[in-house]
Each structure stands twice: as C-alpha cells, then as structure tokens.
C-alpha cells in the first residue's frame, strides 16, 4: 500500500537497505558548532547527503515593531533551500513547502526555548539547505538547536530530530530520499531527550497501530543517537580540552 512503483530494491533479503544500511542504522551524521563569525550562533550539519547550515541572531530588537510581544520574546524561523541544493535548479523564492517547513521547525524548537526571559525581543533562526537528500527538516532542527545553544539562548533542553518510516513493509530508521519517494510511510519526530518530550510529530503514509508505535520508538531511538552527536559538537567547541562528557 502506498509508495510509487519502482525497480529499486529498497530492502534485500538480508535486511540491507538500498544504500547499504541496516534497518536500524542512521546515516552518517556530523555536526560542527560555531561556523559563522557574524551570526550570534551557528552550526553546520552533514546528515547523510544533507548539508545544512544554520545561523541564529538574537535576542534582538523586533522589526517590524508590531510583531513584538510585551510578555515574551518571539521566535522567527526561515528554512530555505539554495537553488543548487537539488538536481534541478530550485527557484530561490520561498515555496509553499519551505514556508510550511519553516513553521514546523519553529514550532518544534519553541518548547525548548525560554523566551519569556526576553520580552519585546526576537530570536531569528536562518536555515540554509546547501544540499538536500530526504529528511532535511530533521537535519535542519538538529543544526538549529545546536546553533541556538551556541548563541547562548536559554533552553530547557536540546531538540534533536530524526525520522523513521516504513519501507518494503518494514519499519526503518532515518529514511533517505529514495526510500521517502518509493517507501510507504515517513515519520519525522522532534524530541527533547532529557525532558522526554516530543516537539514534532508528522506522518506521511499509512501505518497500523502497532507499526505506528514501533515507528515512533524507532525514531526516538534515532533522536537519542543524534543527541550524542549534538552534545559532542558543543563539547568540541566550548570545552575542547578537558570536557568531561
């Protein structure tokens, strides 16, 4: 059920996926914090073939002024794909999809931020996708969260995100572009590991109840792996000698 017809073998009989991974294996993830000089905080992530850079400004004055809130700070988020991030040139104007993902990312990050400490200000998060390959919203959240911590904005917890999905009737961790196109379901999950709270949950496709439960557990397992990498990125930048984690 679901998915497009394709000649690609998504899962062979040994349980190896089309890019050579096992079903519970994420792609290779690398995060680097503090890559931009002019932003208050920044991070670069390579999540498989995704290459994404995130920059954070703020807290700072809100312009236009009418957006400001006297009770709390606000968060603005811009997810943008570069024209060269996909095989066919992408029009740089924000598309319907980018506007939606910006909103989704904003809402995934907001529960972790303590913006009530900075009334009448704004925190701006800019996310630039340099190269896209399935699951870029999860990778973008991971990078944005590290960038926010790098900027020193008070956070209740880090937000880590990872997707799980259903491919060839099997629940797999971290679906890539091919699996997303030809697979049966894709479920990106945002998660705060220390508070054990979910901040993002989307599902594209059809799952039974049992599959749904398994899928969300798999995704949260992936988030915990991502968290260790986020932690390492921040530790490397700030405590390069003698970090204890």
């Amino acid at each position: 059920m679901g998915g497009r017809e394709s000649t690609l073998v998504l899962l062979d009989k040994n349980g190896i996926r089309c890019d050579g991974r096992k079903i519970d294996e994420p792609r290779k993830i690398m995060i680097k914090a503090g890559v931009l000089k002019n932003a208050d905080g920044s991070a670069y992530i390579e999540f498989g073939d995704n290459k994404i850079i995130a920059g954070v400004f703020g807290p700072r004055d809100v312009h236009p002024k009418h957006l400001s809130n006297t009770d709390t700070g606000i968060l603005r988020c811009r997810y943008h794909m570069s024209p060269f991030s996909v095989t066919e040139r992408k029009n740089p104007a924000p598309s319907r999809r980018e506007i939606e993902i910006s909103k989704v990312i904003k809402e995934a990050l907001l529960p972790s931020l303590m913006l009530e400490k900075f009334p009448r200000t704004v925190v701006d998060v800019f996310i630039e996708v340099l190269q896209a390959d399935g699951g870029s919203r999860c990778a973008a959240i991971d990078a944005a969260s590290v960038a926010l911590a790098d900027a020193g904005i008070p956070m209740r917890d880090m937000v880590c995100a990872c997707a799980a999905g259903k491919v060839a009737d099997t629940i797999v961790l971290d679906v890539n572009n091919e699996e997303d196109q030809a697979g049966q379901a894709d479920m990106p999950v945002g998660y705060m590991p220390n508070l054990n709270k979910v901040t993002l949950l989307q599902l594209d496709g059809v799952l039974t109840r049992d599959e749904y439960k398994k899928c969300i557990d798999t995704a949260i397992g992936g988030c915990k792996l991502v968290y260790q990498i986020q932690k390492k990125a921040l530790t490397d930048k700030f405590f390069e000698n003698g970090g204890n984690q």
């Binding site: 303590m114 008070p154 956070m155 209740r156 917890d157 220390n194 921040l234 700030f238 204890n244």
Partner: peptide, 22 residues
C-alpha cells in the same frame, strides 16, 4: 561542563542562575 538539558543534580538545592527546575 554542561550543555542545555544536562541534569546537574537532583538534590534539595535552590536553583540559581541559568538553571531550571523539572
């Protein structure tokens, strides 16, 4: 050394700067 989200302690201490209680 801590990063956001790290649990510092669970004892009966008073939360001071840059910490939150859960």
């Amino acid at each position: 050394y801590v990063i956001p989200g790290d649990v510092i302690t669970t004892g009966p201490y008073r939360p001071d700067q840059n910490v939150t209680l859960d």
